[in-house]
Design a binder for these strands. Structure first.
Lengths: 373, 373
DNA sequence: GCATATTGTCAGGCAGACGAACAAAAGACC
DNA sequence: GGTCTTTTGTTCGTCTGCCTGACAATATGC
C-alpha cells in the first residue's frame, strides 16, 4: 500500500504537503488523498497547517502524529549513559546524561543498572505524551549477537538481569561503534554515502562498516573488531590476539608518551585530551607523538582499505577529532593502499545515541508498517 | 509482472511444471497460465514434455527456450583463457581452453588478443543456434572499475583495443577472484551461504567477499585486494605497499623453499604443486614449509576475519586445495580472532569461468526482464 | 469581478492477481 | 468398461491498487 511509502516519507523528510509527497514518490493526487486519509484515521499522521504556494489554493501540511509513538535510545558508554526519547520523525522529547562513577572497559553491573534506571525513568516521564512506546534501542560497548547466534562469550545478557522490557516493545541492541557509523551516515559527514568505514580511536579501537547502504554485522556480530587484527604481522614474529587494541588504545599511547617524554618538553601530558590540545598548540613533543600515532592508525586504516575498499574513512572517538590526524592518516593509507578519503567526525559525543535512535526508529517502522520495506 | 518471476524460477531451478512453479512462487493457476502463455509467446520458454504425478492429469513441463538466448563467459587467466558458451539456464553449448604461451602476472597484449579471438570464434560457432547473444562476461586478473570511476591505473582498457563488442550485447567485466567467489556461492562449498570470504592462494593472493548475498566490489573496485595489506605491521617497522603479495605468493614461497631446503631432503621441489604433493606424501621438509605457509595465511585470514567476520573462508587457487592447509589456517585464525570455518574449494580450474558465467546470466536477465529485480 | 493557477474530490477504467466453477485427462476401483 | 477421484488447465467474475480525466474549491492578481 502506498500509505506505507507516504508515512516513510514523512518520517524521513519531515512535514510536507500532499503534492510534495506525491511528487517525490510519483503518486497521483487521488492516491495521496487516500493514503493520507488512511494514515490520519490510524492516528499516525496529522494536519499541522496549510502552506501557500505562489498561486492557487493552500495545501494542507501533514506530519507524523502522536499516534505514531516514540522510541527510547540509550548509549551505554564507558563513562556516561546517555538517553534520548524521540518521536519517529526525530523530535527530541527528553534527554538525559548519567555520569558513571568510573570508567569501564566492558559491560558490567554498574552500567546495566544505570541503563535500566534511565530507561524506566524515561518510560514514566513520557507516558501517554506522544503515543505508545514503539522500540527501545541500546548501544552497547560489546559485540552484539542475534538471537540465533552463540551467546557465550558475550556480555549483553548482563543487561537483561537488570531490566525487563515492557510487553510489545521491540528491543534493538547494537554495538556502539556501529551506532556511531550509522549516525555518520544519516546526520554526519558521511551523509548520503553508500559505502564507508567509521573508525573509533579512543580507549579502545573499533570500526563500523556501512557497505552498500547497510551496516555490516558479520557472522558472529564481530565485523569491524579491528582491535583483534593480527599483530604483529611480519615474518618471524609470533602474532598474539588482541594486540592492536593494547597497542593503539589511548592507555598504551599515554604509556609511550610518559616513557618517552623529553626533559625540556614541559609537564608530561595528563591524558589523551591534554596531549591533543598541546599538539594543536604546536608543542613539538606532543605533535611528534600524535604524528607517530597517526602513522600507526594510517597503517591500520590501510589494512581495512585493502580488505573492503570503503573509499571514505570517518575518524571518531576521543582522538578522532584531533586536528592533524586525518591528513596524516590519509597520507599513510594512500601510500600503502588504494585512494581513500579520511575525515574527522563532526558529530560530538551524541553520535552513538543518534545512531541507536535511528536504528530504533527503523525497527519501530518495521513493526508499524509490517514486514514490507 | 509475475512472468518475470516465473522466468527467473525456470532459469534458476531448471525445468518445472506450472503447479510446481506456482507452489514455490505462491501464484495461482490462472496467473501461472497467463505468465507461461506470455513467456511462450515471446519465445523465452518452451514446453519440453509432460510429467505424470501419482494421480490425475499430466502437467506440461516448461523450460528456458531458444529465444531466451545465450551468454559467453571468458576466464582470462594467467596461463589459460577459458571460454564457455551457455544458455541462461546453464546448458553448456560450447567450451574451449586456450593455453597461453607463457605465464602472465597482469593483463597484457597476448591475453587481450587471445580473449578477442576466442570470443569472436564463439560468436560464430553458436550463431542462431540458441537464440540471440545476450551478454559477454570476462573475468580479468586485474582490478575492475565501473564506467563512472577512475580508469587510470587499471588495465582493463587494453582489452577493448583488441575487441569490439557486438551492438546490443551487454559486457560484464569482473575480477577473477570475485568470480571464483561467486562460483563458490552458487556451485561450490559456500552454496546457499549469505556471507563468506573466498581467498585465492596462488601466484598472487586475493580475496573475494560475498556479504549478505552480494559481491562487495568497494569504492575503487579494490575490495579484497589483500595483497596490499599493510606489511610488515609491527611497532618500529616501516610498512611497504604490496608486500603481502610479494611475501605470500608462490614465487616467494618457492624462493624460501629453495633457500632453506635441507641437504638430506632429496631433490628441491620444482614448483608449488610438487611441494604440495610431497607434503601430502609425508616428506618432513615439504610438510614443514606448507605448515609455515599455512601459519602465514592463517594470520592473513585472521586479519580479514577481524575486519568483516565472514564466518566461512573458502581457500582456492593453486595452493588452496592442498590437503593440510585448511585445518592449520583455521587453527591459527581462530586463535587470533573470532570463530571461522576454513574449507578448501571443491571447484577445480573452472571456478572462475563458472562465476563469470553466472554474472553474465544475471546481466542478461536484467536486460531481458527490465530493471526490476 | 474575472481569469488563472493550484489543491482536492469524484467517477471511471485498467492491470494484475485471486477464488470459484467448470472442462479435460489420467489412474483407481468395482 | 464404467464410474469415481484426483490433478491439471481454463473461463469468469471480482477485488485491490493505482491512474486519468472531469469537476469543485480555494487562492492570487488585474
Amino acid at each position: 500500500m502506498s500509505a506505507r511509502a507516504v508515512f516513510r516519507c514523512l518520517v524521513e523528510a519531515g512535514p510536507a504537503t500532499r503534492p510534495q509527497i506525491g511528487q517525490t514518490l510519483g503518486l497521483s493526487r487521488p492516491t495521496m488523498s487516500a493514503a493520507t486519509a488512511e494514515l490520519e484515521r490510524l492516528g499516525y499522521i496529522e494536519v499541522v497547517g496549510a502552506v501557500q504556494g505562489a498561486l492557487g489554493r493552500k495545501a494542507a501540511q501533514y506530519r507524523v502524529g502522536p499516534g505514531a509513538g516514540h522510541v527510547i535510545a540509550v548509549d551505554a558508554g564507558s563513562t556516561h549513559v546517555r538517553v534520548r526519547v524521540a518521536t519517529l520523525d526525530r523530535q527530541l522529547l527528553h534527554s538525559r546524561v548519567h555520569r558513571l562513577s568510573s570508567s569501564h572497559f566492558l559491560m558490567n553491573e554498574e552500567i546495566s543498572a544505570a541503563v535500566a534506571d534511565e530507561v524506566n525513568a524515561a518510560i514514566h516521564e513520557c507516558r501517554a505524551d506522544r503515543g505508545p512506546l514503539r522500540a527501545i534501542g541500546i548501544a552497547l560497548p560489546t559485540r552484539v549477537v542475534g538471537p540465533d547466534q552463540d551467546h557465550s562469550a558475550t556480555r549483553q545478557d548482563i543487561l537483561f538481569s537488570h531490566f525487563t522490557p515492557p510487553d510489545g516493545v521491540d528491543i534493538v541492541l547494537e554495538n556502539n561503534v556501529n551506532c556511531a557509523a550509522v549516525a555518520e551516515r544519516h546526520h554526519g559527514v558521511a551523509k548520503g554515502r553508500e559505502t564507508f568505514a567509521y573508525v573509533q580511536i579512543g580507549l579502545k579501537i573499533g570500526m563500523g562498516l556501512i557497505l552498500s547502504g547497510q551496516l555490516l554485522r558479520g557472522h558472529n556480530g564481530a565485523a569491524g573488531e579491528i582491535g583483534h587484527l593480527t599483530f604483529p604481522f611480519a615474518p618471524g614474529l609470533v602474532p598474539e590476539p588482541g594486540e592492536v587494541e593494547r597497542y593503539m588504545g589511548t592507555e598504551a599511547l599515554m604509556g609511550r608518551v610518559r616513557a618517552d617524554w623529553p626533559a625540556d618538553g614541559g609537564p608530561v601530558p595528563q591524558d589523551a585530551a591534554d596531549l591533543v590540545a598541546r599538539a594543536e598548540a604546536g608543542e613539538p613533543a606532543a605533535s611528534a607523538h600524535i604524528a607517530r600515532h597517526a602513522d600507526d592508525i594510517g597503517a591500520l586504516v590501510a589494512a581495512c582499505v585493502a580488505v573492503v575498499d570503503p573509499g571514505l574513512v570517518v575518524l571518531g572517538g576521543g582522538l578522532g577529532a584531533a586536528k592533524p590526524l586525518p591528513e596524516r592518516v590519509e597520507a599513510v593509507a594512500r601510500r600503502l593502499s588504494y585512494p581513500v578519503e579520511v575525515v574527522s567526525t563532526g558529530l560530538g559525543v551524541d553520535a552513538t545515541a543518534l545512531g541507536i535512535e535511528k536504528l530504533a526508529v527503523d525497527r519501530a517502522l518495521v513493526g508499524l508498517l509490517g514486514e514490507a520495506a
